[in-house]
Nucleic acid binder design. Structure first.
Lengths: 147, 147
DNA sequence: AGAATTCAGGATATAATGATCCAGAAAGGA
DNA sequence: TCCTTTCTGGATCATTATATCCTGAATTCT
């Protein structure tokens, strides 16, 4: 449904959202998100190039969210690393269909639009502040903060 | 969103739904669906093993749908070749979450459930009989029938 | 029985995704 | 300046998904 890479990116952004004021190193993020750290570095690079996070080298460096978590959506994160490709023309290349999808592709694309809508409406802030539910990434938020 | 294989399987089933009474060879299906025929053969085998289609060797053999297209859903076809894996336990393996997903995975899984619902409600029959729309696979249904 | 048709299954090739490693650049502190 | 920390980018590897090929088995027709 969503790629492994998109899942990793979401975890990383959630982790950064927990620490808006402290740059988090790739290693720290890796430990709390359970994402293999060399691969995570690549994913973080993609998020950086997409303008979602800032990176700082050197001692006390690391990654920080560029926007407040209230202004970052799941959609933006997924789109940054593994964009959802909507169907805009007939995948069979039938000219007679053109931009007017047949019922088969219409329904598949409609399904994608449901996903897109759902992801656009989910803000990272909401994920980490939902009442009466466990916190993403951390059984014990205090521990993550202490890493 | 859905894999190439699932897309191919749907095209093949739609083609078979157009020809409930005439076994269609892999080559015929390949031509009308624009799916590379050696790969299509593998996909058809999967559909056969899943019990959706019947295959017959020899002259005048080919593939036929086992059920009426009114009784086959998009969901069944996708599930046969590339099943949608719902999230049932925390992907990070956090025991504290258990089967009670955190908001992040809850939303991703909710998105999947939307897809699942949409696909369960789409019958192949409806795809090929939707009024006021182009027909799946074929700009000119009569041509496909003539292949 | 023999020839043609058609699917089944295994082996293999190619491409995309996921994952690792390392040398180098940027930054901070002593 | 030198050392440590930390990200960057390139190269490489492993795994999975996609695609092809070929031999053999089942079926039909003559």
């Amino acid at each position: 449904m969503i790629s492994q890479t998109a899942e990793y990116a979401l975890r990383a952004v959630v982790h950064l959202a927990y620490h808006p004021d402290n740059p988090q190193t790739a290693l720290q993020i890796s430990l709390s998100t359970h994402v293999p750290s060399p691969y995570l570095s690549k994913v973080l690079q993609q998020l950086g190039r997409a303008g979602l996070i800032h990176s700082q080298r050197g001692l006390h460096g690391g990654f920080t969210l560029l926007k407040n978590s209230t202004d970052v959506t799941v959609y933006e994160v997924v789109q940054a690393v593994d964009p959802l490709h909507r169907i805009t023309t007939c995948p069979l290349g039938l000219k007679a269909h053109g931009t007017n999808l047949c019922p088969l592709h219409r329904r598949v694309d409609d399904a994608m639009s449901l996903i897109e809508k759902s992801f656009r409406e989910s803000k990272i802030f909401d994920l980490i502040n939902e009442p009466n539910s466990s916190k993403p990434l951390c059984p014990f938020p205090i521990e993550v903060a202490a890493v």
